[in-house]
Design a protein around this nucleic acid. Structure first.
Length: 747
DNA sequence: TCCGAATTAATTTTT
DNA sequence: TTAATTCGGA
């Protein structure tokens, strides 16, 4: 059993809480996962709750796996009977189990975002709508939003001509999805909620199935997810939600912090627990993080504190430009290594992926192994998706998106005109594309070459289907796909580095299927396909001691001894898109993002900003981020010059920035850019005249007198802008020396 | 049908 | 800058 004596008071309260609703506000690094797992163990051990009646929901597979593993360690019976999973995986499982009652196909396929988009594009074309006016991305966004608000096509509100069209697209999309036997990510949750809210006996069944519901990262739930949780916990009311409104960074995906903030309104008898002791970060890092996030207006009051040491100051380093920033990053990584840390102890965060390129180049040049989290998912690579599309087609020939993806891949002479012919037929008959292909083949009025090519494709898929129904497993099947379609051979013939990389990816795909067959409880094609769409790259851990590069979003939930956050400039972080609309909510989310970034660091936090940066081919001169300026001075160690903005701005006396919320916005940055460009061309202003400002971590700066054990008393000439700083000191009789600060004693 | 030039748009992306 | 997508011509 879990040892409760190691818990602090609020942690223990959350763990021991018995029946009834409970909301836990878990500050960063406050031992949240520990509380959840101990709580589960306690329910089983002390309250005699059957493990299979406990449902724990997370957002990521990784979090689910971790929870399962840690619960398993605490429970003598292990964790296999617990229902632990992501929202999506849990819903998929329940939808399959109750597919008959709910009225959906048992072996539905799951469409990821790309598949959904392909579907929308197809609908757009079929409805003969202008793809410029109704961008698939935008339309899909509307459909997503509707589904997240639990609004079906029948309830979709029409205000104007645009929403009217979206409504039509939504309806057709929905029909096509049904016809294809497909559900998108939102459907997984929406359809289950719908069914539960409509069907009382299904609800009763769920009540029998689950007596306790736990939700992790509750601040990230959207409306349907809240509905789902509520309907699942409606009867027994044993609902425990855990989260941190300060770490809510997915508003743009439909997450609503109100779900956690207003939990007490929805459940007036809810017990509220706040975990405010941080076990992760140094006191200084914590203060820096708090100073940024406490400026938000709408947040649950929380006062994070720690017993950890003060630690080093947070370094704020001024860089010339993004290349200089990368150079300085490399220096810091080397310093960390020389201090005895491993590469995996260090992480580099940035606001947007586009920033990673320069860093990657610098790291490659410096021969430092790294990995970039995010970017293109393995299962999103074109060749992998192609092969998966074949597998999905084998599983379910009605899957139109997959069919259209591979009907001419590799090229087999089925061109646009042929495909259009098939699609016309499908539209007329209201059937799946697969059935339309059959009809076109049987139609003597069609050109014989067309019929022949289509027949060849149809027979190819049928052959693969026959193998599958003869009991060939997914591993054999994927090999068959590669052989029968001659996909690999075509790539081999290409004989280019890119083709080799693709082949390598396909080999990896085969490998991952073999792993799956070895590990899975149910090594069927269906469950492999589900796993593949519900698994992201973050779940595929890479081995080896490497530096980690990722966006701040990807960093949530992780921690590192050393964290470098790059690009701390206005417009970069806080990020400003082209269509920035001065939404204070957006600014608050940027703050929370900064809070998440800072609180990932255990011992050392380094912030860098560039005075000049090329963004999407455009040069920018932006002020250092307000998030740096807001850090209290006693926590901050300025390197490379304390002056946060070019002197000429200060001289012009219009430096209103920071005086009031939104003050920055009152200053047109175009004007700054123009003025600074002029300054640069005069060769002034951007020349660093602030050497005297450079203060090293021990408070050393130019002009100070210091003593050295060997050289005696000397005068500080300068401070290097890296960490740990090297101090240039002139010693009478010895000349000038470069010396590490720790060998010097200030006088 | 396919290739390469031109055009366009560019946060974040748990599933 | 870049990468993805689209379009036009062979």
């Amino acid at each position: 059993m879990a040892d409760l004596s190691t818990l602090n008071a609020p942690q223990r309260q959350a763990v021991l809480h018995g029946a009834g609703p409970l909301v836990v506000f878990a500050g960063a690094g406050s031992g949240k996962t520990r509380v959840i797992t101990y709580r589960v163990a306690n329910l089983v051990d002390e309250h005699g709750v059957a493990p299979w009646r406990i449902l724990a929901v997370t957002f990521t597979n990784k979090a689910a796996a971790e929870m399962r593993e840690r619960c398993g360690k605490l429970l003598p019976s292990g964790a296999q009977d617990l229902w632990v999973g992501t929202f999506h995986a849990t819903c998929a499982r329940l939808l399959r189990r109750y597919s008959e009652v709910i009225g959906i196909k048992r072996d539905f396929v799951i469409y990821d975002d790309a598949d959904s988009r392909a579907m929308v594009t197809r609908v757009l074309r079929d409805l003969r709508l202008d793809e410029k006016r109704y961008e698939p991305k935008q339309v899909l966004g509307r459909i997503h939003r509707a589904k997240q608000e639990a609004i079906g096509p029948d309830k979709f509100a029409v205000h104007d001509s645009f929403t009217e069209i979206v409504h039509r697209i939504y309806q057709t999309y929905d029909e096509r999805m049904k016809r294809s036997g497909a559900l998108d990510f939102d459907d997984l949750i929406f359809r289950l909620v719908e069914a539960l809210e409509k069907n009382e006996s299904l609800r009763a069944e769920m009540d029998r199935r689950f007596s306790h519901v736990l939700v992790d990262e509750f601040q990230d739930t959207n409306h349907v997810q809240l509905r789902l949780v509520r309907v699942l916990a409606d009867r027994h009311r044993n609902l425990c939600v855990v989260g941190d409104d300060d770490q809510s960074i997915y508003r743009w995906r439909g997450a609503d912090r109100r779900n956690i903030l207003d939990f007490r309104k929805a459940f007036p008898d809810a017990t509220v627990v706040k975990l405010e002791q941080n076990y992760r970060s140094s006191a200084r890092i914590l203060r820096a993080a708090m100073s940024v996030v406490t400026r938000n207006v709408e947040r649950e009051p929380k006062e994070l504190w720690t017993e950890n040491a003060e630690g080093a100051k947070v370094a704020a380093i001024r860089c010339d430009d993004e290349r200089d920033e990368a150079r300085i990053m490399v220096q810091h990584v080397r310093t960390a290594l020389s201090e005895g840390r491993r590469l995996s102890d260090v992480a580099l965060f940035y606001r947007i992926h586009a920033q990673s390129r320069v860093f990657e180049e610098a790291l490659r040049a410096a021969n430092i192994p790294y990995r970039v989290v995010g970017g293109v998912r393995f299962y999103d690579r074109a060749e992998v998706k192609d092969v998966l599309a074949y597998l999905r087609l084998v599983h379910n020939p009605d899957d139109d998106v997959s069919l259209l993806r591979v009907i001419n891949v590799p090229a087999r002479g089925i061109g646009k005109s042929t495909i259009d012919r098939v699609l016309d037929d499908a539209a007329r008959a209201g059937s799946s594309t697969w059935d339309a292909i059959r009809r076109v083949i049987d139609d003597p009025a069609q050109p014989s070459a067309t019929r022949k090519k289509l027949l060849a494709f149809l027979e190819l898929v049928e052959r693969l289907r026959a193998r599958s129904s003869n009991g060939e497993g997914p591993a054999a099947l994927v090999q068959a796909v590669l052989d029968e379609t001659s996909y690999s051979r075509q790539l081999e013939d290409e004989d280019t580095p890119e083709a080799d990389a693709r082949l390598e990816n396909l080999r990896e795909l085969v490998g991952s299927i073999q792993d799956f067959v070895g590990d899975a409880e149910e090594p069927t094609l269906a469950s492999f396909l589900e796993l593949v769409t519900l698994e992201t790259d973050a779940d595929r851990q890479t081995e080896g001691d490497r530096l980690t590069l990722m966006t701040v979003h990807a960093a949530k939930g992780l921690e590192f001894p050393v964290v470098i956050v790059a690009g701390l400039e206005e417009r970069m972080f806080p990020y400003r898109g082209v269509d920035y609309d001065d939404d204070p909510e957006e600014m608050e989310e940027e703050r929370r993002l900064a809070y998440v970034a800072f609180t990932r660091a255990r011992e050392k936090l380094v912030l860098t900003y560039a005075r000049q940066r090329r963004v999407f081919g455009q040069l920018r001169w932006d002020l250092r981020s307000r998030f740096v300026d807001e850090i209290p001075p006693d926590v901050l160690h300025e390197i490379g010059g304390a002056a946060s903005r070019p002197t000429w701005i200060a001289e012009r006396g219009d430096d209103s920035y920071g005086d009031e919320p939104g003050g920055y916005l009152r200053r047109p940055f175009e004007a700054i850019a123009v003025a600074s460009a002029a300054a640069v061309s005069h060769g002034e202003s951007y020349v660093d005249r602030s050497d005297g400002d450079i203060v090293d971590e021990a408070g050393l700066h130019r002009g100070m007198r210091v003593r050295h054990s060997k050289f005696g008393v000397g005068l500080v000439q300068g401070v290097s802008g890296d960490l740990p700083s090297k101090i240039t000191v002139a010693f009478p009789g010895w000349g000038t020396k470069q010396i590490l600060a720790r060998f010097l004693e200030p006088l």
